[in-house]
Amino acid sequence: MKKYLLSMGMIVPLMALAACGDDSSTEANGEEAAENFPENSLEVIVPYAEGGGTDLVARAFAENLQEELGESVSVSNREGGGGAVGMQAGANSSADGHSMTLVTVELLTLPHSGLAELSYEEDFKPVALLNEDSAAITVHADSDYETIEDFIDAADSGENLQIGNSGTGAIWHLAASALEQEIDGSFNHVPFDGAAPAVNNLLGGHIDAVSVSPAEVINQVENGDLRVLAVMADERVDALPDVPTLSETGIDLSIGTWRGITVPADTPDEVVDVLADAAATTAQSDDFIERIETLQLGYRYEDPAGFTELMNDQDALFGELIPSLDLN
């Protein structure tokens, strides 16, 4: 019996974490709400599992925001549907600024793939962009492809390169497909259940390359087992200063994942402003930046305007790319 009492003690905090912030309320008087904000504890909904990269970003942000606002900020994980379940729950949560949702690039890709009925414009208001990780083309250290040009030449000459990704329709598959279209080549896309098994297959020499983020290969790159040929970003990545961007080789392609904080679209603008100011201070604090860097993730902050611009650009990109891939 004692064991069960003990267990119940464990369960209660879990329940409390799970129970908060489910009901949706309508918009309040904006100015008044903004003056009193935050009235009580806040919540960040994370559409992915505990312990993953997205979860760790959310927890780092929540911890720092808590100090900034003086109210507790909890994180609740709502997995499922490749992020669709959690983002849908976030869109339906109370629109008073107390419930935030950590959204990822899947907010744009899932609707275009027909896997979720979400709209970044109609369901959410952006608060802050926290991170960005570009796709990278990585090969085995023993590979014949020394540079990205070698790699593209091989694809051009009709070689059927096997490129591992973390799942069909996932961002790394879209990145490799976009490159395939740009160079007019033909890749053999091999989808894995997540990035780790793809990297493992590359290490074992079973595939030619992977198109996942630098963070997911950096250990093996620094150990000398893998080699990054290029990153699909506008600028070189801090962690890999010697690796060229695709645009340096004349291919104008910038694609990757990002993570940012949003609130439901009905949240009053005045409240969003207060929250965005607090989020800006938090996201630009040394503590937060350091945490993102220890996690080997790419740091990029944007304010609501910059975040909106990023989503507009990328939505246009995916709106063209995804239908052309004929995924379904």
Partner: peptide
């Protein structure tokens, strides 16, 4: 492999 939804009846909870 293809991420095509099977027997999900448009329910996001069934996607995975």
């Amino acid at each position: 492999m293809t991420s095509y939804p099977r027997y999900t009846f448009d329910q996001p909870v069934l996607l995975e």
